[in-house]
Design a protein around this nucleic acid. Structure first.
Length: 558
RNA sequence: GUCCCCGUAGUUAAAUGGAUAUAACCGCCCCCUCCUAAGGGGCAAUUACAGGUUCGAUUCCUGUCGAGGACACCA
């Protein structure tokens, strides 16, 4: 039997050939193969006949007959039926399903990797918090979603660059510098002279103390030694930025997130990219001067009003360096750029794209792409914990990781659709109970590890198992879940929705737990034992692969 | 007021335009002489409202209502 790794695309090809024969004039109709919800509708279903009914002016069932007759023979298909309004339902042979065990054990960590991206360059920019304080839960959601997305896109065959962009020179940084400087001079937020928009958190005092003690801080992308001079504003600014960048690096490391590239806004100015972009925009004819300011006519590109580029005080508004930054990304050769941000920044999308369009350098209209996550509220003891950076009342990402653990925190932040608002219930995430899907999934993996350990044989030898013995109800169900995995990667990559992986893993774990409860693996019959162990070893492999995409550990014991 | 996003069992959430909308939690009833009960098996319950497009709509379009967010020459 030929080995088929992706049944869906295999079947899709068969229908494509049949379509060309039955309706050559409509060969461009998109062929949709789906997994029916009901087992009685087979393993895969095709709705092609219904799509063709209108253009061909024939009944769907009649067309279905013709398509089935024209379908090339395939030894993976066991049964074909016409059902309902004109669905063509296909059932795979047991042998076709069983061979997935060999495929998974052969491919190992590589099982599920597909060639969607074909090695093309893609960048995901995420977190991108300014160095004005520790990371909070909102950044955590960005980190979890962004990092999982990167993992998924990598598995889908893209050459992924993880990037973190931050502003190290703007108004907020001045604010930070002033707050630290005041602390250096012994002034606290309780004093009446403390500025309204100053940062009030205790961590500002830590920065000030470290600066005065002439500490050296090393962040992933920079390091600096404190001067200890409370009047040297430049030194305070650089020290504070380096200090808080280091804090964020520690947060991210505790969260298992690493970046390939850090980009600084100040660098865009230093390299002249901002000035160049302004000149190019002026040359494009999409700008005008009014009220002592320079405006970009973003309404030419779908914005609801024009935006100021250069303020009357001579400074640029934030979106100008943003446009310059994205022009640089484009020049760096990224076929796709995906920005993962909080939904509160959604207004930047139109402006950045408008600026890039105005440059008229061949950048596609929908470039860059955006994944926006909605707000996170934190619940503890049934009460909402308010987040306010300036007031200093705060749930930091590190607090969460310390209290809940990295695995559960990542799971809860990444397992929901980014579009929906998220309530992070600390007590639920901490609970080691049925309510907690993280443990449910990890437990399945640990259970398999235990069985294989008791068996004591060499896992690789299971590749020789006689998988034709795997024909029980629970075994077939588990096989089907293993078959589905590459499709999950594809869907998650296409939708930019890593939560699909989390849901899939819950279902895979459920299929395993049911099997576990219904049967024994370490039976006397050698062939049966090996077949079953091969199946659960393959299941463990897929769990491990999927958990790795979420950045969650796959424990051997719990 | 304009823009973005959301509205699905009592609760928290799934569902590439497909067939009888899927899980978990809560509640009730069962299952450890067993490779981990952090498990399994059952019962009950859902698409905010009104139109439209479609052979077919939770999904797409329009409107209404409701929750959240964004609307600076802030980032």
């Amino acid at each position: 039997m030929s080995v088929v790794l992706n049944f869906k695309s295999h079947i899709s090809e068969l229908f494509s050939l049949a379509l060309r024969q039955v309706a050559p004039d409509h060969a461009d109709v998109a062929i949709l193969i789906e997994r029916p919800k009901l087992a009685s509708h087979g393993d895969y279903a095709c709705n092609l006949a219904m799509q063709l009914a209108k253009p061909l002016r024939k009944s769907p069932r009649e067309i279905a007959q013709a398509l089935i007759a024209a379908l090339p023979k395939s030894d993976v298909i066991g049964k074909i039926e016409i059902a309902g309004a004109g669905f063509i339902n296909l059932v795979l042979t047991e042998a076709a399903k069983q061979q997935i065990v060999h495929a998974v054990l052969h491919a190992g960590a590589g099982y599920g990797h597909i060639h969607l991206g074909m090695g093309r360059k893609l960048q995901v920019e995420f977190v991108s918090a300014n160095p004005t304080g520790p990371l909070h839960v909102g950044h955590g959601r960005g980190a979890a979603v962004g990092d999982c997305l990167c993992n998924v896109l990598h598995a889908a065959g893209w050459n992924v660059t993880r990037e973190f962009y931050y502003n190290d020179a703007g108004v907020q940084i001045d604010n930070l510098m002033r707050s630290v400087q005041l602390r250096c001079k012994g002034i606290t937020p309780q004093d009446s002279s403390w500025p309204e928009d100053g940062y009030r958190g205790d961590y500002i005092a830590d920065v000030a103390r470290a600066y005065m003690d002439r500490e050296t801080v090393e962040a992933d992308d920079q390091h600096f030694t404190g001067e200890g001079d409370p009047d040297d504003e430049g030194a305070i600014r650089r020290f504070a930025v380096a200090y808080l960048r280091r804090e964020q690096d520690l947060d991210l490391r505790a969260f298992n997130v690493e970046f390939d590239v850090f980009s600084l806004e100040s660098q865009l100015y230093r390299d002249g990219h901002v000035e160049n972009v302004v000149q190019q925009l002026i040359a494009s004819g999409h700008t005008y001067e009014q009220d002592n300011a320079l405006w970009l006519r973003t309404t030419d590109f779908g914005d609801d009003k024009d935006r100021v580029m250069k303020k009357s005080d001579g400074g640029y508004t934030y979106f100008v360096p943003d446009v310059a930054y994205h022009l640089e990304k484009w020049k760096r050769g990224f076929v796709r750029v995906i920005n993962e941000q909080g939904a509160d920044h959604h207004s930047t999308i139109t402006r950045v794209r408008a600026g890039l369009q105005a440059l008229n350098v061949g950048i596609p209209k929908g470039w860059p792409e955006y994944v926006l996550h909605q707000m996170v509220t934190v619940l503890k003891n049934g009460e909402e914990v308010k987040i306010s950076k300036r007031a200093g009342s705060y749930v930091t990402l590190r607090d969460l990781i310390d209290e809940v653990g990295c695995d559960a925190t990542r799971y809860f932040l990444a397992a929901r659709h980014p579009d929906s608002q998220l309530i992070f219930d600390i007590d639920l995430a901490k609970s080691k109970s049925n309510d907690n899907p993280v443990y449910y999934i990890q437990y399945a993996h640990a259970r398999i590890s235990t069985v294989l350990e008791i068996w004591g044989g060499e896992r690789l030898s299971l590749i020789n198992a006689d998988v034709s013995l795997l024909n029980g109800e629970y075994e077939i169900a588990l096989l089907q879940h293993l078959i589905d995995y590459p499709q999950v990667i594809e869907n998650a990559a296409m939708d930019l929705a890593p939560h699909h992986v989390a849901f899939y893993l819950k279902e895979l774990a459920a299929a395993f737990h049911s099997y576990y409860n219904a049967s024994r693996f370490l039976v006397d019959d050698e062939a049966t034992k090996c077949a079953r162990l091969a199946l659960i070893a393959a299941a463990a492999q897929v769990m491990k692969n999927g958990l790795a995409l979420l950045g969650i550990s796959a424990p051997e014991k719990m």
